[in-house]
C-alpha cells in the first residue's frame, strides 16, 4: 500500500470525478440515468485499459532512473499548472470553476441532440476528466509499483463522488474545488521536484523521503504568498 500517494491520488481523482459527474448528470436528463451511467462506465473502462497498457509499455525495458526522471517531469508539468490556476482563481484573475455553469453548458450542448450524441457527451466527458486521473495513477504507480492500491484510491474517490451525486441528483457545487486543486497541486509539484532531482543527482535530498514534507510545506506557504503578489501585479498593470 502506497500511503503517501493515497491522499493526493484520492483528492486529484475526486476533483476530476466531480466534473465528470456534472456532465453525466446533465446527460441523464436527456437519455436517462441507466444510459448516462452506462456511458460513464464505458469511459472508465477505456481509462482502465489505457492505464494497464501504458503501465506495461512504460515498465518494459527502461531503467528506473529514466522512469523516475520522466515521471518527475510529468508530475511537474501537471502540478505547476494546477497550482498556477488555483492561485490565479484565488487572486481573482480567473473565475472559480462553477459546476452549475458547467451543467448549463452541457445541457445547452446536448440541446436537441439524439440519443447517441448525448451518450457520446457523457462517454467523452468521463474519459477527458479521467485522463488526468490516469496520468497521476500511472506516474505514482510506476515509481512505487503499487498499482492496485493507487487504483483503489482513484476508485474510492469515484465511489464517494458518484454515490453523493446520485443521492442529491444535483451538481456538486459545495466541493471546495479550488482549495483542493491548490493543495493537491502543491503535493504533486513536491513529488515531481523530489523525483526529478533524485533522478538527476542521486540521493541528494538531505532528509531522504522526509524532505517531501518540507517541500510540501514550502509550496503551500510559497503558493499562498504568491496570491497577493500575482493580484497586485495585475492591478498595477491595469
Amino acid at each position: 500500500m502506497d500511503w503517501p500517494a493515497f491522499l493526493p491520488l484520492f483528492l486529484t481523482a475526486g476533483v476530476e470525478w466531480v466534473e465528470a459527474f456534472t456532465i453525466v448528470l446533465a446527460v441523464s436528463l436527456t437519455i436517462g440515468w441507466a444510459a448516462a451511467l452506462g456511458a460513464a462506465a464505458a469511459g472508465l473502462g477505456t481509462l482502465a485499459v489505457l492505464t494497464v497498457a501504458t503501465g506495461g509499455a512504460l515498465s518494459a525495458g527502461l531503467n528506473m532512473q529514466a522512469i523516475q526522471f520522466v515521471i518527475g517531469v510529468f508530475l511537474l508539468l501537471f502540478g505547476v499548472r494546477w497550482m498556477a490556476k488555483a492561485i490565479a482563481r484565488q487572486a481573482g484573475l480567473k473565475p472559480l470553476h462553477d459546476e452549475d455553469a458547467e451543467f448549463r453548458e452541457t445541457r445547452a450542448r446536448i440541446g436537441r441532440a439524439d440519443w447517441f450524441a448525448a451518450w457520446l457527451v457523457a462517454y467523452k466527458g468521463t474519459l477527458m476528466e479521467g485522463l488526468e486521473v490516469w496520468l497521476i495513477v500511472v506516474a505514482f504507480s510506476l515509481h512505487s509499483r503499487a498499482w492496485v492500491s493507487n487504483g483503489i484510491a482513484a476508485l474510492a474517490a469515484l465511489l464517494v463522488v458518484f454515490t453523493t451525486g446520485l443521492a442529491i441528483r444535483a451538481p456538486l457545487r459545495r466541493v471546495p474545488e479550488n482549495a483542493i486543486k491548490f493543495i493537491v497541486g502543491a503535493m504533486i509539484v513536491s513529488f515531481g521536484t523530489f523525483w526529478t532531482l533524485e533522478a538527476l543527482a542521486g540521493a541528494v535530498w538531505p532528509l531522504g523521503d522526509w524532505s517531501l514534507l518540507g517541500l510540501e510545506a514550502f509550496f503551500l506557504a510559497g503558493g499562498q504568498a504568491l496570491v497577493p503578489l500575482v493580484r497586485g501585479r495585475r492591478v498595477a498593470a491595469a
Binding site: K85, L93, T193, L197, L226
Partner: peptide, 16 residues
Amino acid sequence: VVAMPAACLAAVGWLA
C-alpha cells in the same frame, strides 16, 4: 536542493 523548489515556485507565479 534549494534552487529547484525556488525555480518551481517562480514558474508557478509566472504561469498564474
